[in-house]
Design a protein around this nucleic acid. Sequence first.
DNA 1: ACCTGAACACCGTTCAAGT
DNA 2: ACCTGAACACCGTTCAAGT
Lengths: 195, 195
Amino acid sequence: MELLTERERPMRADARRNHDCLLAEARIAFAKYGADASLEEIAHRAGVGSGTLYRHFPPREALLEAVLRDWTESMAEDAASFLGKGSPSEDLHAWLRAYIAHVTVYRGLAAALMVGMQEKSSALYACGQSVRSASAELLHRAQEAGEIRPEADISDVLKLAKGIALAAEQTGGGDDLIDRLLAIVVDGLRVQPAK
Amino acid sequence: MELLTERERPMRADARRNHDCLLAEARIAFAKYGADASLEEIAHRAGVGSGTLYRHFPPREALLEAVLRDWTESMAEDAASFLGKGSPSEDLHAWLRAYIAHVTVYRGLAAALMVGMQEKSSALYACGQSVRSASAELLHRAQEAGEIRPEADISDVLKLAKGIALAAEQTGGGDDLIDRLLAIVVDGLRVQPAK
DNA sequence: ACCTGAACACCGTTCAAGT
DNA sequence: ACCTGAACACCGTTCAAGT
């Protein structure tokens, strides 16, 4: 039996061209205006009618998801490279820092992921899942090493990370702010030495 | 010299009535649709033209601020009542829980406060200041008692609190989620027993 | 099969005209 | 001095008509 994913259903040449053009313009627009850039302008700059954009990417989330897909996959793959650089909790810390940096590239992205990773119906859900399981691996190791509390839940940790990303994004605080807030959270996840 | 704040500049009777009507409707609309409820509908339900709303509350933030003012002031006043109920850090913890609960009453409020408390030009800035100084008092006590790290900054702490509020709001997680995340943050603020 | 672009329903904001 | 409501510029989404 042939394992044929439907990744690449054939597309009419002009449709394919429009699809790619829209993606390219969306990438630019999101970087420039944030995740809630005007869809109308994206369509216009791609040289297509607004209806065409909706044909290819029904809700706005679908467009965001398409733009994020590559980036999100490579990030999940990179997760393993964070293992063993320091102590397990240091690895987790470094990974979370990278996660926040990624989630901060587009303004509004953290908010979109916050809801998207929750709802199974969302186009962003799949993206979130691969990142989540990659993160879970790092958390798990730190827990087995006895450095991080065993009750800690990966979803909670990622929510805090996105919360930090939102705070940095909305208050204009830079990497310093992110480092300070993240340090607090990671320390809060540690097993308390004596109590 | 008379200390006469301009709190109550006289207003024409009809203007006053419209002002109050708009506030009442805004309260209802924010509760129902979140902090980004339709201004047009608020004006309509208050029985005034849309222009009248803008005359009274130039940017949307001003309307939000007006709706929040009482509530925000009473909260700052209540802060003192949190002192001495438990250990200083427990008091802080309880206060932050109350803060998050307040910031969660309207959907979108946490986000609005996150930016509003930062920009001096914002109508929400003053609101934020009184709450911030009330919070600083509680943090300070816990620091003097040697329970909370001396480097901890109140603005950072409140940003984390708002981040938690955003996470709860956007993922639909209830009080359980808030309690879990807040416990992590507060533990992260503690002075580490031995290291 | 796919695209176009006008049409629709909805925003927030401004402003000339009214009282 | 204050209010009204039409006008403006902008959204996202739909859909009949074209190729």
